[in-house]
Design a binder for these strands. Sequence first.
DNA 1: ACGATGATGAAC
DNA 2: TTCATCATCGTA
Length: 194
Amino acid sequence: MGAAFLSSLIMPVAEMSRVLSPSFFRRSVVTVARDLLGKFLVRRISGREIAVMITETEAYDGSQDRACHAHRGRTPRNAPMFGPARCWYVYFVYGMHWMLNVVTGESGYPAAVLIRGAGEWEGPGKLTKALQIDGAWSGKVAEEKSDLWIEDRGVAISPRHVQALPRVGVDYAGSWARKPWRFVLRSSSSFLHS
DNA sequence: ACGATGATGAAC
DNA sequence: TTCATCATCGTA
């Protein structure tokens, strides 16, 4: 069996393994937030996979960022943010809603991307409710065996369809609240109506 | 515009 | 132990 034949078998398999690897997340959080648009959030519930395209994200960047939970140092809740990239950071807020974040950057540097919208669900609380995601995922790795991960399915997003806006619900953060670290995928229809 | 609803973290 | 705060959402 020749090497050429082997690689013809192996290469397509390698291209099919589209689960985002740690290196995707081990970059600056703003870059990762933007690049997550068009990627697919996949959730497996009792053997059944639900895959939805990510349409809205927000970056939270380190302890200097006053809107970031790490701004007041490490606590039991935000500990996953200080861990390695590609882990989930899930927290409960307003007495009702679970927020799904994925950790980015080097280990020890607290940063994460909030996934605000995917598929038909616009809003971070609606998304976690629909996909049955709660604090049990906080600190887990975004890989298949966690039943919650992110895939590249070959959708290319043009920069002209990405809208950068201020983050939502962080008015207390002063000038940090005005940073354009919220990324929204504009649908072609909303583009026409704009 | 507002109330629901409860974990979290800091102060005491 | 108390208390203010909160990366939201549905209803009005």
